[in-house]
Amino acid sequence: MTVAAAQADAAEVFSRRFAAHRSQRRAASAGYAALFLVAVIVSSIVGEVDLARLAAGLPNIAAYIGRTLPVLRLDTLWADIGEWLWAIDIWLVMLGDTVLMALVGTVFGGAIAALLCFEASENCGASPLARQAARRAFDVLRSVPELVFALVFVFAFGPGPFAGVLAILLHSAGALGKLFAEANENAEAGPYQAVLAAGGTRLHAIRFGIVPQILPNHLSYLLLRFEINVRAASVLGVVGAGGIGEELYLVVRQFIYSDISAIVLLILLAVAIVDIGCEKLRHALIAPAGAAR
């Protein structure tokens, strides 16, 4: 066979394989597309999607949002703002309670997570059985939404912030426990082994071999969770579990429009302030640890 013929042959083999590969890929893509389309159609039917209703509803939504906006005239601006935020003192106290609920829930949920996370991680757990138990407990706590816990606790303890705190606490314990355990597993094994080799117990090894490595990491997760929990706490009041959500739900149901925008604005501001504060604190916590390395 001549060189030219061999080249032509190779080119033909290539183009045949390329065509086969491409048609295979296209068939797979078509299959996924069909599956996707079926999912869209089925969920549109189950979800009662109705474009006519959307078209009819869109002006309603715009009108609704328009009605919530306050009337602010330039010549009487301060009086108008005062009228808009007429209950600001009550609302600020409620907002404060919301943040405090998130704080207590985060701290105690984080404490539970910190106590259990070492059992849940592969490198420093006591036994495989304890590890599985701790991990499953985290999964269950993490997967049940806060609001579901809150519904049950409101029934038991009555309306008020305590039910909300318990709900946040349990959900945070699960979410943080999983993250903490993963952070532990990423810690370097050397210090842990060294403490064991020097005759320390497992608890010593965790305290002096793992904790110094993971502490900044855990604290930064804790701060992130606090930000998330402030958001969550602001709506728990919808089921009666304390905080500003109660007031928001009340004014929504009673169609006190301008109060709706005032409260939503206050929640947004509070969330933004907490976010910025946590960001600052996180940098302050992590910077010295990073500099020491």
Binding site: G47, E48, D50, G57, V252
Partner: peptide
């Protein structure tokens, strides 16, 4: 809460 007021109750 807002959309329930605007387009009615239901999954939509």
């Amino acid at each position: 809460l807002i959309f329930v007021s605007a387009v009615g109750m239901g999954p939509f």
